[in-house]
Amino acid sequence: MSTAKSARKYVPKPEGLNLEFHLACLEAGTLRIQRCTDCGQFRHPQRWYCPSCHSRNYDFAPVSGSGRIYSMAVNHFTVDRGWADELPYITAVVELDEGPRVVGSLRDVQPGQAGLGQPVRVSVEPRGEEFAYLWVDLA
């Protein structure tokens, strides 16, 4: 993928808890997931309260980055001009070994070459100062 193409893609300006997530990932260089420091439950996307024990205490804990394809959007059409040159592209929902699921781009895989349940690894790549882009690779 060329830098020019990447530049045309939409990059959000995170705020609040979501910004904390991205900064935690960027600082570590690997995936971090919000975790309740009282009951230990992971949660994603970020929430102010733990939906299990209602604690407001949390950190962004390291996770292995390994998991399996839980579902995916196999895109043959896009309304997003930033993605038109990538068609077809696959957006994967990954269930991490630790439980929570994340959305990222499955790269170097054609439609039909990957299925649900397939083992994958999730890595992060900085997009600017405040956004950690998630890549998904077949394990």
Partner: peptide
């Protein structure tokens, strides 16, 4: 917009 759109999923 924060979790799906960055990956080309926005419809």
């Amino acid at each position: 917009r924060n979790f799906y759109a960055p990956y080309g999923v926005r419809s």
